[in-house]
Simulated assay, not measured.
Amino acid sequence: MTITAAADGSALGNPGPAGWAWYIDDDTWRAGGWPHGTNNMGELKAVLDLLESTADAGRTDEDLLVLCDSQYVINSVTKWMPGWKKKGWKKRDGKPVLNVDLMKAIDAAMQGRRVRFEWVKGHAGHPMNEAADQRANAAATAFQKKQAPQEGPGFDGTSSPAPAAATGVASTADAVVDRELALLSDAVRGDRELASRLLHEGMTEISATGQRYSRDDVLDALSPLVGFDAVDEVCAADITSSQIAPDVFLLTYTTSGVAGTVARSSLWVREGEQWTLRHHQATPTER
């Protein structure tokens, strides 16, 4: 049996509020996004979540056909990825591969599976592509309006949904990690308004030098990280997430740069439907 699904991404402004979605039928689809991202990020995330969702459902032994209107995604996965891996995830010109965190995760998720990609023309009336596009755009629009997007029923859409506490932890953790990566990206660090949406009103930070910062201090100090964009350099797989209370997630990870290696921890809290960063601490581990 072959599972056939359409995957699509959307970004309002590109970059801007971004969404992703995959669609099999009206009972089997999923969507999500970020406050700030690109269309290519959405396209890749849709494919990754489709791979992960079918794996979680125990369907890795079935063929998977992905309908995609992005030549970038298809070429990345089917043509360019083997060469990038041999070069240490570098392009032919020696520059780092863009969206490498998503690329690596897709590569890992495809191992041992029979996955094919088929290009379809976007916005041309293909029913499944249109359905995925509508859901991805709706997710991007929700983030633009500072609302939670409709996530959909997931892969097993025919079963009665379990309580959110039982089914939502993994997807919620992914959403919190996405916000951490967005906050670390040059695009958000260079836009005070976008960054402010991710910070709790009472946010505090302890820097690697031991200095304490308030929310306003952090916003005043934010600037693009020259030569280091965490969305590309810090893989989502490298971030450990722990739900320590119903509305609290702790993220931990390590970064390396000119200042040395730093262990980082971020405390994210939910108020209503919004997750914001309440506290961040950076601890140097070596110089």
Rank of each mutant, 00 (worst) to 15 (best):
G13T: 15
W89L: 07
A57K: 08
G19N: 00
P82A: 05
A21T: 01
L67V: 12
E118R: 13
I74S: 08
P96R: 07
E130I: 07
D25N: 14
A21H: 04
V100T: 10
S70D: 06
R135F: 01
G16M: 04
T78N: 12
L64Y: 08
T141G: 00
W80T: 09
N137S: 10
R30A: 12
A57E: 05
L102E: 07
A140W: 01
R30M: 12
Q111H: 14
N129I: 06
I106G: 02
S70L: 08
W22V: 01
V97R: 01
D27N: 10
K87V: 05
A140S: 13
M103T: 04
G83A: 10
E52S: 04
N129M: 05
K95D: 09
K79V: 08
P149M: 03
M128G: 02
G37M: 06
H123W: 13
D49F: 03
L102V: 04
V77Q: 14
G83R: 01
K95C: 05
R135L: 13
Q111S: 13
K95E: 12
A140C: 06
D27L: 07
S76V: 01
G88I: 14
R59W: 10
F143H: 03
Q111N: 08
G58E: 08
W80H: 14
K146C: 11
R59G: 02
I106E: 03
W119D: 06
K91M: 10
Q71T: 15
